[in-house]
C-alpha cells in the first residue's frame, strides 16, 4: 500500500469471493470505505451484509480476494495482530449482544477492564461519560433484560465506543424499532461520526433512514455491487434493480413469484 492510500480509505475490499457451503454469498465485490464518512451497505435480506462486517472484523475469512483495514490485510493477520486491530473497531450487533449476566455499567466497563489497567475511579468516569452520550446514565444499575430493544442498542453503542475506536460497524441498527428509537439511533450515529470523526459502516435495508444520514451507499445483490454513490445520485440510478429496491416496488427485476414452472401447466398437471 502506498502512503497516499492511508488517509483516504479506511477499508478497501477487492474482488471478494465467499461461499457458504454451496451458496455463493460474494462473487467479486469491490468496496471502499472512506475515512471519517458514513458508508452504508444496502441490499435485500440474506445477501451477506452481516457476513461482510464479519469479514472486516476478521471473524470470517473470504475464500479469495483482499480485505484491507487501515492498511492491514485482515484475513492474513495472526490472532494477536487481529485482536490488536479489533481494539480499534467497534461493532453494534443487531440484538445488542449485551452480556446478560452483567449490569449496564459493567457491560460498558467490560472492554475497559479487559484492555486497560485504569484505576476504578477513572473507569467509572469513562463509563458514565459514554452512558451520558447515549442518554442512559440513569439506567446504569439495570440488567440487560430490563431494557427495551432500543435501549439495549444504545448501551451496545456506548460499549462499542468505550475504547474510542477509529470505526464502528452497525449491523441493522434500525430493524424492528419504533420511530422514536430510530430517530434517536440516527442522531447518535451522526453525532458520533461528526463530533469524534469515527468512520461508520452501516448495514441496513431501511432506505429512508439510510438515505438521510449516509455519505455514500453501496447496493449489493447476489454477491455483486450493483451500484454505488452518494444517496442523491443513487436515486437517479439507471439500474432497474436499484430503482425497485429504493422505491419498494413489489415486482421488477426481483420477481414477486418464487421460480416455478408455468402456472397453467402446473394447475392442469394433477387434474389430468
Amino acid at each position: 500500500m502506498t502512503a497516499s492510500d492511508r488517509p483516504e480509505l479506511l477499508v478497501k475490499i477487492r474482488d471478494l469471493h465467499f461461499r457458504f457451503g454451496a451458496r455463493v454469498i460474494f462473487d467479486g465485490a469491490d468496496i471502499d470505505i472512506q475515512r471519517g464518512k458514513i458508508t452504508t451497505i444496502m441490499g435485500p435480506s440474506g445477501t451477506g451484509k452481516t457476513t461482510l462486517l464479519r469479514m472486516i472484523g476478521g471473524q470470517l475469512k473470504p475464500d479469495s480476494g483482499s480485505v484491507l483495514v487501515d492498511g492491514l490485510e485482515v484475513p492474513k493477520l495472526k490472532t494477536d495482530q487481529l485482536f490488536a486491530l479489533r481494539k480499534h473497531m467497534g461493532m453494534m450487533f443487531q440484538t445488542g449482544a449485551l452480556f446478560t449476566g452483567l449490569t449496564i455499567f459493567e457491560n460498558v466497563a467490560y472492554p475497559l477492564r479487559e484492555h486497560t489497567r485504569l484505576p476504578e475511579a477513572m473507569i467509572r468516569d469513562l463509563v458514565l461519560i459514554k452512558l451520558q452520550a447515549v442518554g442512559l446514565r440513569g439506567a446504569r444499575n439495570l440488567m440487560p433484560a430490563e431494557l427495551s430493544g432500543g435501549m439495549a442498542r444504545r448501551v451496545a453503542l456506548a460499549r462499542a465506543v468505550a475504547l474510542d475506536p477509529m470505526m464502528i460497524m452497525y449491523d441493522e441498527p434500525f430493524t424492528g424499532q419504533d420511530p422514536i428509537t430510530v430517530g434517536v439511533i440516527m442522531q447518535l450515529i451522526r453525532h458520533l461520526n461528526q463530533s469524534l470523526g469515527i468512520t461508520s459502516i452501516i448495514v441496513s435495508h431501511d432506505v429512508t433512514e439510510v438515505s438521510a444520514i449516509s455519505d455514500y451507499i453501496y447496493m449489493i445483490s447476489e454477491g455483486k455491487v450493483v451500484d454505488h454513490g452518494p444517496p442523491a445520485e443513487l436515486k437517479k440510478s439507471r439500474s432497474d434493480w436499484v430503482q425497485q429496491f429504493l422505491q419498494a416496488l413489489p415486482d421488477g427485476p426481483v420477481p414477486f413469484q418464487y421460480p416455478a414452472p408455468d402456472y397453467r401447466a402446473d394447475l392442469l398437471e394433477d387434474g389430468g
Partner: peptide, 17 residues
C-alpha cells in the same frame, strides 16, 4: 445462549477470546 444472542461474537469483536 451466549452464542445465539451474539454475546460470544461480541466478545470476539471486543478483542476478547
Amino acid at each position: 445462549l451466549m452464542k445465539a444472542t451474539e454475546q460470544l461474537s461480541g466478545m470476539e469483536m471486543m478483542a476478547v477470546d
